[in-house]
Design a binder for these strands. Structure first.
Length: 314
DNA sequence: CGCCTTTGACCGGCGC
DNA sequence: GCGCCGGTCAAAGGCG
């Protein structure tokens, strides 16, 4: 797998606020040209080292309030135009926003599914009773269990392979044809017991060279040490710290940022990443800043970005 | 043999 | 009620 296939890394984050009065969804997107060296990511990781004192920094960085429905830009539409450029865009929308979902596939489908408040799997804690008839169970339990929205995170990557290696073990449990798209959508579940994280993978209909990956939920466990192949060796030791200690991947990071009330103290450290928005992810900073840093930062970057984007060879 | 993918059936929500 | 659609189940088969 040549590095050119991962030359462009598109990043699209979305998450939801869960508080009682505001149910907004923030979306953050940016595209970063990696050029020929991973240090090109530095602006991304550099910000992670910065400290942020308060949760509100996210809104301040965005220059908007959580209830704002103003749209600064359309990240997905921007993606198609800035394939080989650096850009960053931020938008915030509400579930009731009339923003069209036609410009993207999976990423904007988030909005729909979130709005639908679909019932989550009742087997969240333990699926020991797998033999129970699903038909009756679903009907009975559906009402009782309060619908709960799982934080989601979607990002777009330029890749020829659909399922990107991200350090976790996944089991495919379904595949469906995507409406208005020749490419199917695959459904994966984390194979770690009691971990309910799911992800969807589909190739972009508008740009078949890109793959849209959507994570749902947060891992409640460290990276598995028994990865198939030699994938585990690809990650630095810090990768195996408890998943709750700090964000390991962008989706975790952003979920923590946008839903800080769900964090524990350790996770709160992840808020530090919010400073990145004030610098390079601000809607008013469309100029990309190139930073040249040391390898140590690269290690941290690996903690955040699926290994596929950092590896030079499969 | 364990783990994984494949794949059609099934489910529930939604719009008509 | 019916059909569509997104998502999930689970049996069957593949593979190392």
């Amino acid at each position: 797998m040549s590095e050119h296939e991962f030359r462009d890394f598109y990043y699209h984050a979305s998450t939801m606020f869960h508080n009682d009065h505001v149910d907004d969804m923030f979306r953050v997107s940016s595209s970063v040209s990696v050029d020929h060296h991973p240090s090109s990511y530095m602006s991304f990781t550099d910000c992670l080292h910065s400290s942020v004192g308060e949760y509100g920094s996210l809104e301040k960085a965005f220059g908007l309030s959580p209830s704002s429905s103003e749209v600064f830009s359309s990240p997905i539409e921007g993606l198609n135009q800035t394939t080989n450029q650096q850009s960053s865009e931020v938008m915030a929308i509400t579930p009731n926003s009339s923003i069209s979902s036609s410009s993207s596939e999976a990423a904007y489908c988030e909005e729909d599914s979130a709005k639908n408040n679909k019932d989550k799997q009742p087997k969240g804690s333990d699926d020991g009773s797998k033999e129970s008839p699903k038909k009756g169970m679903k009907g009975a339990k559906k009402k009782a269990e309060r619908k709960q929205k799982e934080p989601r995170f979607a990002f777009v990557t330029k890749s020829e392979v659909d399922h990107l290696e991200d350090g976790y073990r996944w089991r495919k449990y379904g595949q469906k044809a995507v409406k208005n798209s020749p490419y199917p959508r695959s459904y994966y579940r984390c194979t770690t017991q009691k971990c309910t994280v799911k992800k969807r993978v589909e190739r972009s209909f508008q740009d078949p060279s890109t793959v849209i990956t959507t994570y749902e939920g947060q891992h409640n466990h460290p990276l598995p040490t028994t990865l198939r192949g030699n994938a585990a060796a690809l990650f630095p030791p810090s990768m195996f710290a408890p998943a709750t200690a700090r964000p390991s991947f962008p989706h975790e990071l952003f979920m923590q940022m946008a839903a800080p009330h769900e964090m524990n103290n350790q996770q709160a450290n992840g808020v530090a990443a919010a400073s990145m928005f004030g610098e390079n992810f601000s809607p008013y900073h469309h100029q990309y800043h190139h930073h040249h840093r040391q390898v140590s930062d690269y290690g941290l970057l690996q903690d955040m970005v699926p290994s596929r984007f950092l590896k030079h060879e499969p």
